[in-house]
């Protein structure tokens, strides 16, 4: 998508060629087309490709399910029924699991738990990584050196492996899961935030603020942060996907969210053995794939939206 050879906007000159006479006044009175922020947001939303729309609608559905889980689920999260591995029926839409819990209800509660944990983790990772990165970018010097080298070392260990090691030490509970993954993921956030912040820090308006005598907080919050928001928002989407998949993978391995909390990763693991009965009961065999598909669809949806957002905010243009 990158197209650096495309014309800069300057090449497209305004069209008032009738004004032949040059004067400072005419240059000064040139008015460029302007719109309010809301108009611009609506305009670009209207032009969003179909994939971005699908993504946004899907994300909205997931959010509604997660928020209203207790209202939508027919049964309780840990309610146990008499028959384990019950087939799909009117009573249990997707049957029951190995100890007789309603799969459909657990899928709905799983949205709340899995997405909630992934979201909390991503937010924490951004708070840690983003905060440190901004400090490093503005102060530079030793602070930057030490933080960057530390991040290099932490990133030299594959994050899933690191997470496994730390879980073996701290045990698998939701708080330790969130903290461990957030800390590990914050290294990636740090790298990106530092890189984009560095591009802004070298700009002259930051130097101007420094020459004016502005403090660190002002420079970070008012001069840098607003200018790095678009890449950070996109990165938030991507990091969310990554965290979401990591949490799911850990739960699938039996090391993440622990029972009886409903969670998509462990649901796959618990019902995986049903797959081998595909020739006799295809519906039952599909059961373990439902939570896996729920994970995949949300990730694809977020990726669709991020792709469009990145394409739009980076100002990249495709050839036509």
């Amino acid at each position: 998508m990158t197209d650096t050879t495309a014309k800069t906007p300057d090449e497209f000159a305004p069209t008032d060629a009738a004004e032949e006479d040059y004067s400072a006044a005419s240059e000064v009175s040139q008015v460029k087309l302007r719109r309010t922020r809301r108009e611009r947001a609506w305009l670009s939303l209207r032009k969003a490709p179909i994939s971005a729309w699908i993504g946004m609608v899907l994300i909205a559905i997931y959010a509604i399910v997660a928020i209203f889980a207790p209202l939508l689920a027919p049964y309780g999260e840990a309610e146990v029924f008499a028959q384990p591995y019950a087939p799909w029926s009117a009573e249990h839409v997707f049957g029951t699991d190995q100890i007789g819990r309603d799969i459909f209800s657990r899928l709905i509660y799983g949205a709340r738990n899995t997405i909630g944990i992934a979201l909390a983790t991503t937010l924490l990772a951004f708070a840690i990584g983003g905060g440190l990165a901004l400090t490093a970018a503005v102060l530079r010097g030793w602070t930057d050196q030490i933080l960057s080298r530390l991040v290099d070392v932490l990133m030299a260990i594959p994050s899933l492996i690191f997470a496994l090691m730390l879980l073996s030490i701290f045990g698998s509970s939701v708080p330790s899961l969130i903290c461990i993954i957030a800390v590990l993921d914050s290294t990636r956030v740090f790298r990106l935030t530092r890189a984009v912040a560095m591009n802004v820090v070298v700009m002259e308006f930051v130097e101007a603020a420094r020459l004016r005598g502005e403090g660190l907080a002002w420079i970070m919050r008012r001069e840098i942060l607003p200018n790095i928001m678009p890449p950070l928002v996109a990165e938030f989407g991507l990091r969310f996907c990554f965290v979401f998949l990591t949490v799911a993978a850990l739960s699938f391995l039996g090391l993440g969210i622990q029972p009886p909390t409903a969670d998509w990763g462990s649901m796959v693991r618990d019902n995986a053995s049903l797959i081998q009965f595909a020739q006799y009961d295809l519906k039952a065999a599909l059961t373990p794939l439902l939570p896996a598909a729920a994970i995949a669809i949300l990730t694809i949806a977020v990726n669709f939206v991020v792709d469009w957002f990145l394409h739009k905010t980076s100002g990249l243009k495709d050839e036509h």
Binding site: A6, K7, F12, H320
Partner: peptide
């Protein structure tokens, strides 16, 4: 030239 989702004369 193509910009802002449409063609402009250069």
């Amino acid at each position: 030239g193509w910009s802002d989702e449409r063609w402009h004369d250069i």
